[in-house]
């Protein structure tokens, strides 16, 4: 009996301790963001929402958010239009290619952002090329592994080749068959992949900052600047950023749990 009760409380205790550890700094940041002053004291001197006003009134806040958004939307579009058809083809028609794509998973670890941006600076640094466009292509490329992995499971189970070809026999064009027959069946995996891609692009820092020499001030670059100039406003931005990531996580939870439920039915 004793072993059984250990089995009950020990896992909970471990998860609670890890959660407190991971959430501690975020909770502190939130309290900091609603404090009048909180320097070298155990508790803040007073509470206020004025820093939220200060941040949102800052003329650089909206433009930097928009720049991150432009980057993320462009990358999502490339992922959808360029990568998705190839992943579909590899999964359904070409297992050999699929075997090769598997090696993509080591990419983020052997070529992290700081390494890749070195190549970008060397190759394009002094060329008269549209650097923002190259940045978008580069971020798309580094998003590919996670996108590919999210879709992998989606293509298992159903006979996509049959569906795709039958739709074409019934008079659909290739594109039409893909949009009407394939897409609805990989909806959940696709949504997860696109959300991960969106988040990666939206939060990218090192490549954007060094390659575009800080000229294209995204939300993260703005956050870093703010951190060194106005800590209170920066804490507000950090909280907004966390809430944004939280909303995406919440959508992911919804997708994954509804998928699990429909599998059970």
């Amino acid at each position: 009996m004793r072993a059984h009760s250990v089995d009950k409380w020990l896992p909970r205790l471990i998860i609670i301790l890890i959660a407190i550890f991971l959430l501690g700094p975020i909770v502190a940041t939130f309290i900091y963001s609603i404090s009048t002053v909180w320097v070298k004291t155990i508790l803040p001197s007073g509470l206020t929402f004025k820093w939220y006003g200060v941040l949102t009134a800052d003329p650089d806040f909206i433009p930097s958010t928009l720049r991150s958004l432009i980057l993320a939307v462009a990358v999502v579009l490339i992922t959808m239009l360029v990568f998705l058809p190839v992943i579909f083809y590899a999964n359904v028609y070409n297992p050999k290619l699929k075997e090769k794509l598997r090696y993509l998973s080591i990419l983020p670890y052997s070529i992290p952002g700081i390494v890749l941006v070195t190549g970008l600076v060397q190759l394009y640094g002094s060329l008269p090329v549209p650097k923002l466009l190259i940045l978008i292509l580069t971020i798309s490329a580094i998003c590919l592994p996670a996108f590919y992995q999210s879709l992998n499971n989606a293509f298992m189970g159903d006979d996509f080749q049959g569906m795709f070809e039958q739709a074409q026999l019934l008079g659909d064009s290739k594109l039409g068959a893909f949009v009407r027959v394939v897409l609805p069946n990989i909806r959940a995996g696709l949504m997860v992949g696109l959300l991960l891609t969106f988040t990666t692009a939206f939060t990218e820092y090192v490549i954007t900052n060094i390659f575009l020499t800080g000229q294209y001030e995204t939300l993260k670059i703005y956050m870093y600047r703010l951190m060194n100039t106005n800590g209170n406003a920066a804490s507000v931005l950090t909280i907004i950023f966390f809430i944004f990531l939280g909303i995406i996580a919440f959508i992911l939870i919804k997708i994954v749990s509804s998928q699990k439920r429909s599998v059970k039915e």
Binding site: L116, G119, A141
Partner: peptide, 9 residues
């Protein structure tokens, strides 16, 4: 986006 920069690097 990826291969040429790495080769050149």
């Amino acid at each position: 986006g990826l291969i040429l920069p790495v080769i050149v690097m």
